[in-house]
Design a protein around this nucleic acid. Structure first.
Lengths: 341, 341
DNA sequence: GTCTATAATGTAACCGGTTACACGTAACCG
DNA sequence: CGGTTACGTGTAACCGGTTACATTATAGAC
């Protein structure tokens, strides 16, 4: 918006074309009849002058910005690339822009004003814990469109959310380890505490154990934080403590990377001695050694649907489906002990 | 900006606090003296009313948006995650927002109006070929701040650009294959034609060959497009044609993934029979089988410096350094034939 | 004790669009 | 042929901030 002093405005166009600003505006927005002769004249005048309408002025007048905000907890992870693409694609299709803000540390905006909001955008997408309850309530009060991603909203708020099926998949992949590979002592690596995905995955894991009459040894549940380094340390630590395990459900694929590295360092063969499975099916998963058995989360689709829902909300639609739960799928590779072609 | 009808404005605040709008504005922006008593009053009134200044109105009045635009050719690749983080981090530090637009197909905006520009933002970052020469000239005419990423600007424009050192690194890694591993027939996979990085990498490759008195067999230069699938096909095709090679410089790490897959399918052992090296050191590189010898490109830093330069430009600084060339570094792993610890 | 500089505040124009309303003209109808 | 309707256009208020300029009160200088 750094328009130089003498930038060309709608009035310049109007004057040069010999019409009123209202006519120019109508021509621009197809918001009223404009004679063919005038249309032609305006078209040429506008290219001659290289006129581009000023977004802020338009936003101010119309109360619409055609922009949506995205709040992330950590941009830059491999996880976000597909999410971003899904979001951006969908928004672009509908002529909306995307404003991004990353909160490096969790809950960064607590008590402060959000970097995106009603003053800024027509709606916001909030990933996981990037939006705290206070803000969520404030936004709801103003009836501001919000869609949550990988997080279910507080029960008292009618905020749509889009995420993937975690529990059943976690249960299934754990069962796979038990039934097919006869694992009995399966270590589980938890994600960050605020991360809801982790909670459901752990629930699925626990259910699978009890389904098969296995009792859970608390020593087998540890923090991996969905991070390579943390998972790496966790595995070494467990080993150091003398905890015995024959499989690891790493919580997500990032942690799987760290886990594989740790096991290699400990000279524990995967999958012969220890089975390893992850969650997400990030891009690197097939290329790990051994290729990682994991659960495929349709992250790009999550982005797509989240954007979709938000646009519906913005365009005045009601919230017809509160929770969009996208199906996940077990991807069998080598690290669990299977030998796929 | 979907403010509901009766949203709270600066005048509401002024009235409730019993002062004029000018005073409120001065208080908000610390742009003039405000008595302590009034300051206190305003603070409480503003929290009571939950007042947030409207961005568009402010932008309109000040001709500043504190937003920069980013044009990408393809969001969603692993390459962009660190780039984005570098950019977003730096911008956030200086209170700027980031507006993202991805052009799925190259040159998407040719002839059309850019999705970001002077009407929108205070400056833009253009990755590779996302900005064509016409737009570049138009922007330059308006003296609009632009910084290019992984692309050198047309010679007649004073547009700063930030990229990584390609040629010397490509030359060095190729020399490594020749000198250390005694490779003689090194296949090179080119990136997309518009991609300048690819050009420089190929130049370095050719220099290394001639440095060592090797002549280039044109059959050894093929298209990999920096994409797994394309590289995969290229390798199979070369093999089908009976082209003999003892090493592959894959152009980038994406293509290296495809290359490794193709060689495995052909039962050609890496690195025993064929050495493979990439470029970028993407996150998956250490986890490939075998771990990939490559060149580390400091992509997050590229984002950081690009944002930095742009902010300098926006804040009126002159272009002191036209080309920021970040150093790269060879990362020796296993795929070239070395055996690092 | 007057003069001047400074602090604190208010008034109103302005940024560049949109749009409600008014107006004139031509077409259409019975 | 008068009356209604639709079309094409213009005038001016408005969106919610910023800011130049004017104004008053207060303190310090001489």
């Amino acid at each position: 918006m750094t328009r130089s002093r003498n930038s060309v405005t709608i009035r310049d166009v109007a004057k040069k074309a010999g019409v009123s600003v209202a006519t120019v505006s109508r021509y621009l927005n197809h918001t009223g009849p404009v004679s063919h002769a005038v249309s032609e004249r305006l078209k040429t005048v506008m290219t001659e002058l290289n006129y581009v309408p000023h977004a802020a002025a338009r936003n101010l007048a119309t109360h619409k910005s055609f922009t949506v905000g995205l709040l992330l907890s950590d941009i830059g992870g491999d996880f976000f690339a597909p999410l971003l693409r899904g979001i951006e694609d969908t928004l672009a299709e509908h002529g909306y822009d995307l404003l991004i803000s990353s909160t490096r540390r969790p809950q960064r905006w607590r008590g402060k004003q959000l970097p995106v909001g009603p003053h800024n955008t027509d709606g916001i997408l909030g990933f996981a814990d990037s939006l705290d309850e206070t803000h969520l309530h404030q936004l709801a009060e103003r009836h501001f469109p919000v869609v949550l991603i990988h997080r279910t909203p507080p029960a008292d708020l009618l905020v749509p959310s889009v995420t993937v099926e975690n529990k059943a998949a976690a249960r299934a992949i754990t069962s796979h380890l038990i039934e097919v590979h006869h694992r009995r002592r399966i270590l589980f690596l938890q994600g960050p505490p605020e991360q809801e995905d982790s909670y459901w995955r752990e629930t699925g894991y626990r259910q699978a154990l009890s389904d098969h009459g296995l009792t859970l040894d608390p020593a087998l549940v540890r923090r991996g934080d969905f991070e390579q380094q943390v998972a790496y340390e966790a595995i070494l630590q467990a080993h150091r403590e003398g905890v015995v395990f024959d499989a690891v459900f790493t919580g997500d694929d990032e942690a799987a990377v760290g886990t594989l590295a740790a096991l290699q360092k400990l000279h524990l063969a995967v999958p012969e001695e220890i089975s390893v499975v992850g969650f997400d099916d990030q891009r690197m998963a097939p290329y790990l050694t051994p290729p990682l058995t994991t659960v495929r989360a349709p992250t790009e689709l999550v982005g797509h649907y989240a954007a979709q829902r938000l646009l519906e909300l913005i365009q005045g639609g009601a919230v017809e489906e509160l929770l969009t739960l996208l199906p996940t799928e077990i991807i069998i590779r080598r690290s669990c002990g299977c030998s796929p072609s």
